[in-house]
């Protein structure tokens, strides 16, 4: 009889687990009081713990911006480090509320994983890192090379496409984490390390002698990196999407974390709408009317976030390039807040 009861208990638990009733993410976040944000396991400039053990980076700041908009406090974020392989499962299963982990937006990920990409926080492209002493100046000279990459990324397919299209031989060795990949490259197992160019700039810093390596000039793919949320929760999708738009619009209007308070007194109608002194746009999102003000005050606009984490004054030294505002010849463009 005892065995029978345990059989029931097991079967019961099994059945209950299968019932995946999903409450609205916004209500869940409000009731628990923080946002669970999926980030990388350590990619300088994007999501990386600093020497005090605090998470820093562009992707991290974006999650803080969402927390500022929803909870009014940018520090109300908990971070879950995820490998490239596990990231989507963590979001699908509800372990995290946002995936902000240098993730490339592709049609298959957007349509078959039950996920939605909310925008592009960084326009990137895939490149190659190689030792200077190999005397290679172009990616087209890489025939026969051994290529190290991380499994579960778009780079695996891009590199296959690139070598195939140029009729070159290659060998790909795919590792589970970025650290294992860069270690194998550093030890000489591979001739080339490939990932997004921002990632190359970041991972290069982990090499024994970063100056012995160069990033080849070719960009072999489009890698729009952006935050991801679950499909089917339109309200949450809107909040995350408009958080980025608010940051981009903020930069365009010159609202920074330093002058945000003064901007409350601004007479410019566009500024008034974004800081919430005119209109009730927060209500439509189901959050406070000062949502965009809190984002800009606590985290800053897109340009501040970029310069602080990956810009020319950081170890990554990445120029704005395609990530400049549309008014300055870049691709960052946000729909108006009105």
């Amino acid at each position: 009889m005892k065995r029978l009861i345990s059989t029931f208990a097991f079967a019961g638990a099994f059945g209950l687990c299968a019932v995946g009733a999903q409450a609205a993410t916004l209500d869940q976040v409000k009731s628990k009081g923080f946002i669970q944000c999926g980030v990388s396991q350590g990619l300088p400039g994007f999501s990386n713990p600093n020497d005090k053990g605090e998470w820093t980076g562009l992707d991290v700041d974006f999650c803080r911006a969402v927390a500022a908009a929803v909870l009014g406090d940018a520090s109300k974020v908990k971070f879950t480090p995820l490998s490239a392989k596990d990231r989507f499962t963590a979001l699908q299963s509800g372990d995290i509320d946002i995936l902000s982990r240098n993730t490339t937006w592709t049609i298959s990920r957007d349509t078959s994983l039950g996920l939605n990409f909310t925008g592009v926080t960084y326009y990137d492209g895939q490149g190659f890192l190689i030792r200077k002493d190999k005397n290679v100046n172009s990616a087209l000279e890489l025939s026969g090379a051994s290529v190290c990459t991380q499994t579960g990324t778009t780079t695996e397919q891009n590199v296959a496409d690139f070598f195939r299209a140029n009729k070159m031989e290659y060998e790909v060795i795919a590792f589970a984490t970025a650290d294992e990949t860069i270690k194998a490259y550093d030890s000489g197992r591979c001739d080339v390390y490939t990932t997004d160019r921002s990632g190359l700039a970041a991972e290069r810093l982990k090499l024994t002698n970063p100056d012995d390596h160069i990033v080849l000039s070719e960009i072999i793919s489009k890698e729009p990196l952006g935050p991801v949320v679950r499909h089917g929760d339109d309200q949450w999708f809107d909040i995350v999407k408009w958080t980025l738009f608010a940051q981009v619009n903020g930069e365009e209007l010159g609202i920074t974390s330093k002058n945000a308070d003064e901007m409350l007194k601004s007479e410019n109608p566009e500024v008034k709408r974004i800081v919430g002194t005119e209109g009730k746009f927060g209500e439509g999102l189901g959050i406070g009317n000062d949502w965009a003000f809190q984002i800009l005050k606590q985290v800053g606009n897109y340009g501040e976030m970029y310069d602080r984490n990956v810009g020319p004054d950081t170890p990554l030294k990445l120029a704005r390039g395609t990530n400049a505002l549309w008014t300055k010849g870049g691709l960052q463009y946000a729909p108006p807040i009105r």
Partner: peptide
């Protein structure tokens, strides 16, 4: 094997394929 990049069943199928198709 996945730790050292050997393409075994878990690395190739439960790793790359799972990630590309999402059909866990």
């Amino acid at each position: 094997a996945v730790a050292i990049g050997y393409p075994d069943l878990v690395a190739v199928f439960a790793g790359t394929t799972l990630n590309q198709t999402g059909q866990a």
